[in-house]
Design a binder for these strands. Structure first.
Length: 334
RNA sequence: AAGGAUAACCCGA
């Protein structure tokens, strides 16, 4: 093992990271416990003339990638005890490993240990991990405190992702209006809501049946040229439709359609149905054309709705024409 | 030089 470790350090010195990493992998597979592996790597580090500590980072990475996150934590802590520090990026990989196994308290503990009592400066990835953990622990007060603290003396410029994490957490906990407030404050921090911010809020609002506000947000994002996801758009359109606001729902499809986005087929079919019933056939036909243009995979149900409507109006010729198009499109009549 | 981050999507329980 000692020769392995010496070799690792020298490979790292020559920037041969990939071989160094696979060498470490074989060391890990020997099943030694992480502190003794660390001792070995540390002993050969001291003996060698190389001064890059990146070999330790690779060791940590290897543990994380082998889903041995807790072992990676041992190495990080051992390094600190020996006065060595991994790169911030490496620590962040460990933090996300911990999040994946839902050890949120450990994320907070490691954050304190590594960043509160050293010269290491957390970056936005690290803050995102901490905020995420606080949200998962339902401690939104502390999450907000942490953000204000980081804004003042965090040493790095917070980006929109951090706020998106908080917004998502609040929405998931049903605190949608707080989430909306956070978004409103982004401007004062020199940030702009992005597609994730908007989609998260839109879906959060839909989940608590606030379709009107969701609609306003979609309007706003479209003004900024941000295209809502199919999922977000579908939720709002279907919500408005179920509230009986079929006209508004249709207007939204029309508007967003110009940006190339359509609701999913389910929602479109429901809209066809509602338009035929409440708004007359013209709009339904227009929607149907849009669905064809946008390449939505129209199914038998979509055709049946149109055919049925023509039949009910006694326009059998039209119905047969649509039936013909259906056959041409290769769809089995049902 | 590396599989370091947030919605949705997907898959499994």
């Amino acid at each position: 093992t000692t020769s392995f470790c010496l070799l690792v350090h020298s490979l790292v010195q020559s920037k041969l990271y990939w071989p160094a990493s696979s060498l470490l992998q074989t060391v890990l597979e020997r099943g030694e416990n992480p502190s003794s592996v660390f001792q070995n790597v540390f002993a050969s580090y001291k003996r060698s003339v190389f001064n890059s500590t990146y070999g330790f980072d690779l060791l940590i990475q290897n543990y994380v990638q082998s889903r041995r996150v807790l072992d990676s934590v041992v190495v990080v802590k051992s390094m600190k005890e020996c006065g060595l520090f991994p790169e911030v990026r490496t620590i962040s990989a460990v933090l996300y490993g911990l999040i994946k196994i839902r050890r949120f308290e450990m994320v907070l503990g490691l954050f304190d240990e590594m960043f509160m009592s050293s010269k290491l400066v957390p970056d936005s990835y690290v803050y995102a991990a901490v905020i995420r953990s606080l949200c998962e622990l339902n401690d939104y007060d502390r999450a907000k405190e942490m953000i204000s603290w980081a804004e003042k003396n965090g040493g790095c410029k917070l980006n929109v992702v951090i706020y998106n994490v908080l917004i998502h957490g609040l929405c998931k906990s049903g605190r949608v209006w707080e989430a909306v407030d956070i978004k409103k404050m982004l401007g004062f921090r020199g940030l702009r809501a992005d597609v994730v911010t908007y989609c998260t809020l839109v879906l959060g609002l839909c989940r608590v049946d606030e379709f009107g506000s969701a609609l306003d947000l979609v309007d706003e994002m479209v003004e900024y040229g941000i295209v809502p996801s199919e999922e977000a758009l579908s939720s709002v359109v279907d919500g408005m439709r179920r509230k009986g606001e079929v006209g508004k729902a249709y207007g939204l499809i029309d508007k967003v359609g110009k940006l190339g986005q359509m609701p999913n087929l389910y929602v479109c079919n429901a809209m066809l149905q509602s338009l035929c019933k409440d708004e007359g056939l013209e709009k339904a036909k227009t929607l149907f054309m849009q669905m064809e243009e946008k390449g939505l995979l129209i199914n038998d149900i979509s055709y049946n709705i149109i055919i049925d409507t023509f039949c009910k109006r006694g326009e059998v010729d039209e119905a047969i024409a649509v039936f013909g198009r259906m056959i041409n499109a290769g769809i089995q009549p049902t």
